[in-house]
Design a protein around this nucleic acid. Sequence first.
DNA 1: ATCAATTATTTGCTACACGCAAAAATCAAC
DNA 2: GTTGATTTTTGCGTGTAGCAAATAATTGAT
Lengths: 154, 154
Amino acid sequence: MNEITNTPAEAAQLADLTFKLLANCQEKEARLAEQHGLTQAEFRCLRLFGTEESSNNKQIAKRMNLSPSRLTRIIDGLVRKDYLIREIDSNDRRNMKVTLSKQGVLIVQQLNNAYINIHREILTDIDEVQHKPLITAMTHLLSALEKWIAKDIS
Amino acid sequence: MNEITNTPAEAAQLADLTFKLLANCQEKEARLAEQHGLTQAEFRCLRLFGTEESSNNKQIAKRMNLSPSRLTRIIDGLVRKDYLIREIDSNDRRNMKVTLSKQGVLIVQQLNNAYINIHREILTDIDEVQHKPLITAMTHLLSALEKWIAKDIS
DNA sequence: ATCAATTATTTGCTACACGCAAAAATCAAC
DNA sequence: GTTGATTTTTGCGTGTAGCAAATAATTGAT
C-alpha cells in the first residue's frame, strides 16, 4: 500500500481537470473524425495505424485495446471506404494482412496534419513560456496514469 | 484568421499527449464506473449531478451536452437503481423534478472520494514540486481547448 | 373562455460501439 | 490423420446517442 501524503486539494483539482479535459478531448476527436467522414473508432484505428507497414487483426486489436471481433468490424468499414486493404497472409492463411491503400496513406497524412494543427492553434492561446512546462507536466501525468492503469488490473 | 507561429514540434507532442491521455482517462473512468455497477453515462450523470439540489431533464441534458431523450434513458437507469427520484414538478407539470435519493447522495460521495483518491495516487508518482505547475498548465490547456471548441461551431 | 403556438418529456426507430461465445478455417504437433 | 491451439468472423446482447413523432402541460392571443 502506498502512502499518500499530498494535499487533497490538489488531487481534487486534478480530478476536476482531467474529468473536464476528457469531455473536451472527446468532443475534439469526434469533430475531427466527422469532418473526414469517419466514425471515432475508425479515426482512432487509422491514427494508430499511422505509417505502420501492415499488421493483422489481432495485433491491431491489442494495440487499440479492443477485442478482435470489434476490430473486424472497424476494418470492415475502412475497407468499404477504400482506406484499407485486407488480404489473406500467404505465410499463415489464418491471418489477415491489413495494409493502407493509396487513399489510406493520404487520409492518414491529412488526419495527422489536421490533428496537429488543432493543437498548434490551441498553443497560440497559451503563453509561450508555458509551452515546455505544459508538455513536461503532461508527460509526467500520462506516465503516472499509465502506471496506475497497469497496476490496477488486480 | 489567427497567425500560427509556434514550433510544429510542440504541437505534435501535445497532439500525441492528448490523444494518449484521452484513451487512458477513458479507461480510468470506465473502470471506476464498473466498480460501482454503473454505466459510463450514469457515472458521468451522477458526478455532474454532484450535490446539486435537483434539476429537470433538459437542464441536465444541456449541462451534459446530450439530447433530452438520451437523458430520459440515463435517468431511467438511475431511477431503477434507486439513486435518483423522478417526480412531476408541481409548479410546472411538464417538468420532471430529478433529485438524489439517500442512496444517491451516498454513492455520489463514494464516487467523488474514489475519483479524488485515484488522482491523489497519481500525484504521489509525480515530483512534488511539479504539482502546482501541472495544475496550472492543465488549467490553461483546458481553457484553451474550451475556447477552441466554442469557436469551431462554424 | 377557447384555440393556437410553445415547451418538456417520453417513445420508436436507427446507427454506432463493444464484448462474448460459437463457428469456421488453418496450422502445428504428435 | 486426429487433436489441440490460433485467427478471424458472425450472431447476439447491451450500451451510447440523436432525430422525429407523440403526449402532456403551459402560455398567449383573440
